[in-house]
Design a protein around this nucleic acid. Structure first.
Lengths: 246, 246
DNA sequence: ATGCTTAGTTGTACAGTCCAACTTACTTAG
DNA sequence: CTAAGTAAGTTGGACTGTACAACTAAGCAT
């Protein structure tokens, strides 16, 4: 089947197929999907099937799979499709993370995966039965994942942490309306360290990325102003990081 | 042939090959190689061959090509090999840039490329006859490149510029020994704007990334201290960017 | 000696974080 | 009705590092 499709491609447009006449790696796309749930950063994992010939049966893995050359126009569309299938989210923050390819990462042969990472608000709803949100940092989680997904996840966390130091990415983890202390809390969860309240407020408010809505969040103490993301706002890059620990 | 290799992979380890029985995208690796030459930022391009069945004959393209599942252990090794073949450089700064895959980027079929970007010092020596250093920004260069290499190159330049704002990456573009004004000039070439001398010196010297050698660069005016990169020094990340224009 | 050029330093202004104390607005207990 | 408690939000001084500009230093040429 693969050989036949290959032959067709060659035969249609070109006379000398020799140059394409070699084995091709497997091509997959995987998505690291982050959300904040119950005051912790979580990643969505799915359990590998256990059929004959399936690698890593029952192990947890990043959602993903083979590129379908008939259905997927490009890699980003493929990643968006997988995200949508697992979470129902259609307009998330979706960024390419990198690619991992080697002779040994998949027992079925030389394979390369294109990894994406997505930030979505907590959806609340139910997941497919084979999917679960795992809290991070995840103890021995890294060692238990299928393929090299532990490495990919570690890279994603590192990238997220790094970018949170100087960007507005956590805004994409927030629900439609949120307070500044809410947002600060999400920054602190991701960075795993407390931030200065006044510097945080100055930075966020001067970035022109959120706007107040005419409502307050009421509670057992002083009410807090609610904000929402400005429409179509691209991520903001600050000229400084938060001062890193030591 | 491709089909046969595929079959072999399947037959060897697994009983039920159905799941792998579909067409596979082409897998390539391309490398964006930057260097400073004649006081300008340059990228290495190679001219496409003109044989029958070759896409984009005579067009300029990034150095790269198909992954060889027999020779290349992983993607990074493949990229390092291509860099070495074209430039002779063996221990450069090599970073993954991202991947581009779609049904249409290569007329031979659905294909995905893994792009890397490398920073190397000016080698001086001769190149292969099909290779040339093109100065950047390159006018209409972007539109003339084969495949989607114009997009890849634009992304690489953007990434380089962005990182130069807050990292020591330009150090990898320098020869073994250089002066602080030399290094500042390279920063300015990449960023295409002048930087403040005193702030620049403070930043670099306090980053513990270079060390003085017991020599001065002599010229028609005051001699300048020569420095070299500290051994095994990973790139430095500064907590601030240079103050961006406007 | 004088001037020219580039290397390198110094000092003031300014921006933004750090740190800590403070005020504000609401709830709950008495 | 008041007092205590808590979280929201503000204020001000210390500190860090860049911006800007003037300065000194070291070589060469005339």
């Amino acid at each position: 089947m693969a050989g036949e499709a290959l032959g067709k491609d060659i035969g249609k447009d070109f006379g000398k197929p020799r140059q394409l006449d070699f084995p091709r790696p497997l091509t997959t796309v995987d998505v690291v999907i982050f959300a904040i749930r119950d005051d912790s950063l979580r990643v969505l994992l799915v359990q590998r099937p256990a059929g004959e010939g399936e690698p890593f049966p029952h192990a947890w893995a990043l959602p993903g799979g083979f590129v379908d050359v008939a259905k997927d126009r490009d890699l980003a569309a493929c990643a968006a499709r997988k995200l949508r299938e697992k979470t129902g989210v259609t307009s998330p923050y979706l960024e390419q993370l990198g690619s991992w390819g080697s002779a040994t990462r998949d027992p079925r042969g030389w394979s390369a995966t294109h990894a994406y990472f997505a930030l979505i608000p907590d959806q609340g709803g139910e997941l497919a039965s084979d999917a679960r949100w795992f809290p991070l940092p995840g103890g021995r989680l890294k060692d238990k994942l299928a393929f090299d997904h532990g490495d990919i996840l570690a890279t994603a966390i590192q990238r997220l942490r790094n970018k949170v130091e100087y960007t507005s990415l956590p805004a994409y983890l927030m629900p439609a309306e949120f307070t500044l202390p809410d947002l600060q809390r999400v920054y602190e969860i991701v960075l795993d360290r407390p931030l200065e309240k006044s510097a945080f407020r100055t930075r966020i408010l001067s970035a022109d990325m959120i706007e107040p809505v005419a409502k307050m969040r009421r509670g057992p103490n002083r009410p807090a102003q609610l904000y929402r993301l400005k429409k179509g706002r691209a991520p903001v890059y600050f000229v400084r990081t938060f001062n890193p620990p030591e």
